[in-house]
Computed example of a mutant assay.
Amino acid sequence: MSANILVLVGSLRAGSHNRQFGEAAVKLAPEGATITIHEGLDALPFYNEDIDLDGEVPDAAARLRHSAGQADGFLLISPEYNGTMPAVLKNAIDWLSRPFGAGALTGKSVAVVGTAFGQYGGVWAQDEARRAAGIAGGTVVDDVRLSVPGSLTRFAETHPVDDPEVAEQLSAAIARLSEGATAQA
């Protein structure tokens, strides 16, 4: 059985190292896994129950929910902004958590990885993303942890897929996530 993994990148910047992590994940997908980066988080309005109405859900939210509904698992890629995850990633989790108890994350495997400039690689933000995804109904694969520090210098001239240590660790993380997603599918 194959796994369909949806990637949500918490950085909107075109040259983002976390975006590059997503690109690396696509290239490093194990056999039998399809990994797709969701485009459009920048167009997603902040979650508000007043606009989350049957037949009236904003297009960006409907597209996200549709893509998430097709996924067997999720790879959340988070930088760290002021000690926590970026609002764009939290907002995506909020949209996917509804309807409560039956959102698109419910019962599906979720792993969180990323990189940040600081010395801990965004570990606080990634812990926050794990917690939010779990509360939203996802099955967090806790043994998948990859927080790469020093992103500005480490990836100044090297794409994460070309960094042997990162590529090996990211491949292992994706393989573990794919196993979990396949088992739950």
Rank of each mutant, 00 (worst) to 15 (best):
R145G: 07
L41M: 11
H38P: 00
V112I: 14
L152N: 15
H159C: 06
H159Y: 10
E157M: 14
A60F: 14
M1C: 06
G83A: 04
S67M: 10
A102N: 15
Q119S: 15
V123G: 08
V123T: 14
R98L: 14
P86M: 02
D50C: 03
V88M: 06
A156Y: 08
P45A: 09
D50T: 12
R63V: 15
N4W: 12
G101H: 13
L170T: 07
D127E: 15
V113A: 07
I51D: 05
E56S: 11
G121C: 05
G40K: 06
E157C: 02
S178G: 05
L89E: 02
I135Q: 08
A129D: 12
A181H: 00
R145Q: 13
I174L: 11
A25E: 01
V144S: 00
G15V: 11
L28G: 02
D54F: 12
V26G: 00
A3G: 07
G103Q: 04
K27H: 09
Q70E: 15
I174V: 02
L177Y: 03
A25G: 04
L12R: 05
G137I: 04
A33N: 06
N18Q: 09
A92D: 07
A14T: 15
G118I: 11
A172S: 09
P58L: 06
R19K: 15
E49K: 08
A25D: 05
D143K: 08
Y47D: 00
R63A: 14
Q184C: 07
A104E: 14
G114N: 01
A60R: 07
A136Y: 00
Y81C: 06
V123H: 10
A132L: 10
N82A: 14
A102V: 11
L6A: 10
T36F: 07
L96F: 13
F100L: 14
A43W: 08
D54Q: 09
G122S: 06
V148T: 11
G101N: 13
R19G: 13
E179A: 08
F117C: 03
S109Q: 14
V113M: 08
I174E: 00
I51A: 02
T34V: 13
D42K: 08
V7H: 06
D127Q: 05
V113N: 01
P45M: 03
L41E: 08
G121D: 09
G122Y: 01
G122F: 00
A43S: 14
F46W: 11
D72C: 13
T158N: 02
W124N: 11
V110K: 01
N4F: 14
P79L: 07
E56Y: 10
S11G: 05
A61W: 06
